[in-house]
Amino acid sequence: MPDIIMAGAAGRLEGRYTPGKRDDAPIALILHPHPKARGDMNNAVAVQLYHLFMQRGFATLRYNSRGVGKSQGEYDSGIGELADAATALDWLQSQNPAATQTWVAGYQFGAYIGMQLLMRRPETDGFISVSPAANMYDFSFLAPCPASGLFLHGSADSIVPPVEVERVVTKLRSQKGIVIDYELVEGASHFWENHLHEVERRVGAYLDKRLEENPA
């Protein structure tokens, strides 16, 4: 799991990267929660997502957006952070030009940035959005959503009420050509204390299902 440095628009971006098990391994980019809430690439949910993809042979990258950890620059209200995500995906693709699939996974603020990135990168095959802040950010840009994916949320999330995420899911499910899975974990909070094993179990099961349907 080597440390890597990428050249971003606001300076260097630091990351952690695990190569895939094959030259044509699929790739996965992991996005962390909000920088202003001490979110970084070592957040427990982000690390869990990283390991889930890594264990399935993906070439997997997580990174710190601008102003976080050793990454240069300052928080940019999501605009610069989207540019950072694009930089990270470009780097990941440059390391894996023969990748069979491309996935994006994010938690909280990272889910919001990840879904924006998804709209700009039609080569993306799937996404994982954990606790997306659907009451804080406008997700109407998902029109249409270009890939199938999973929304995972906690029933006890007092920061983002489940009904807010369900509105987004309902809208996306009306689109043809994609399949949106939604799982609500009973008792889980926004921060997944004591429920991290459910992230592992549910996201892992979803990835296994998708990879069985369409081997990478």
Score class of each variant (00 low, 15 high):
L196K: 12
I27V: 13
E14L: 05
V47W: 00
T87D: 08
E198R: 13
A88H: 11
P144W: 04
N135A: 02
D76L: 06
E193S: 08
L49C: 07
Y63H: 09
L172Q: 05
W103G: 04
G177E: 14
L152E: 14
R202E: 14
G69V: 02
A133D: 03
S94P: 01
R121S: 06
P2R: 06
F109P: 02
I180N: 03
V165I: 10
Q116V: 01
A188G: 01
F151C: 01
M1K: 08
I128M: 03
V199P: 11
K176N: 07
P161F: 02
L172G: 00
S140G: 04
R22A: 05
D3K: 12
V179D: 15
G57V: 05
Q48C: 10
M119L: 06
D90F: 07
P122E: 13
N96I: 08
K209S: 12
A105W: 07
A9W: 00
S155P: 12
A133R: 04
I128S: 05
A59M: 09
E212K: 15
A25T: 00
P26N: 15
A7N: 11
G11Q: 10
T87H: 05
D3P: 07
S131F: 00
L13A: 07
F109N: 06
Y107V: 09
W103S: 05
T124H: 00
N135G: 03
D76R: 10
A133I: 05
A105D: 03
N214K: 15
C145A: 05
M6V: 14
N43T: 15
E123L: 04
P35K: 06
